[in-house]
Amino acid sequence: MSALELVGVSKSFGARAALAEVALSVGEREFVVVLGPTGAGKTTLLRTIAGLETPDRGEVRLFGADCTHSSPAARDIALVFQNFSLYPGKTVRENLAFPLLAPGRELAAGEIGERVQWAAKLLRIERLLDRPARKLSGGEMQRVAIGRAIVRRPRLFLMDEPLTNLDAKLREELRVELRELARRLETPVVWVTHDSAEALSMADRVVALFAGRVVQVGTPRELYLRPATPAVARQLGSPPMNLVEVLRDGAVWRLPNGDAFGAAASDAPQRALLGFRPEHVRLEGGASEALVEVVEHLGPQRVVVLRWGGATVHAAVASSVDVAVHQRLRPAVAAEHCLIWPR
């Protein structure tokens, strides 16, 4: 049985369609990342699952039961908001205890204290327990917000860009920690983000959402290597996949200015968008010349920005490779690494 199943869920705000026929299923211990650009409907999707929005059409099923019209309280789901949403006047302890004090939960005071301690220990915020929430740093606030979610041991976690407002270093740390936490709690997670690193590093499965539609579902590796659309290709990876307009001239792809790019199959379309990852660009052995415009040093690798036949192409090479700005090279990409979208 899947923990969560969405069937043909649509939601519009006025004339604007936020979600269109979204289908999604999340397994009982699965970590699913919904990846999409700003405005793709990711937050609306989470709010619909949580019950804060009612879909116009379609069904929300939780553990086999139709929950489309049940109240948020009845769903037993936890939602972590992008903007933390702690109660500023309450202490961390009170914030953590708040979900446990909800009517109908009826926990003994001792049990509440124990659970708060447990969550605080897990998230390493024990020393903050008596501090007012407004005096926390961003990272601490987000830990508390996640603590509020785990403290009542819900059936499903929903995370709305929980790391977006944090600085880069903290983001990387929490990414690892939270992935581990989800594994330990054995609770399914739907994690929404526009950050490709989060999708690639955390997800069991990635759902690519564009303009309210699910464009592709698969493992991070599948989406990385075989993106279904140019938009998915652009969203994943840093630097993202190169996308180059080409024309077929017999058995050769030609770049916008007519320079040869590489061999084309005889049954390939006349006009196409070629997609290839920066790490698949070699800097020698190509059919035409390119100019090095920028060289970026990123530690273990180097990103080289090339002007090649009227197109801009990123190449990622080992930092041991010698390359200088204004140098002329003959780059090449193996045919098996090129994705072809007919135009």
Binding site: A50, G51, L52, S71, P72, A73, R75, D76, I77, A78, L79, F81, N83, S85, Y87, P88, G89, F98, P99, A102, P103, G104, R105, R148, R152
Partner: peptide, 25 residues
């Protein structure tokens, strides 16, 4: 709004969220 919405998801009704979260704020 996130204040009340968090309370709703946490298991409170709209009325309880109003009294326990909105009014104190």
């Amino acid at each position: 709004r996130a204040f009340e919405e968090a309370a709703l998801v946490d298991g409170y009704t709209r009325g309880q969220a109003f009294v326990r979260v909105v009014l104190p704020e």
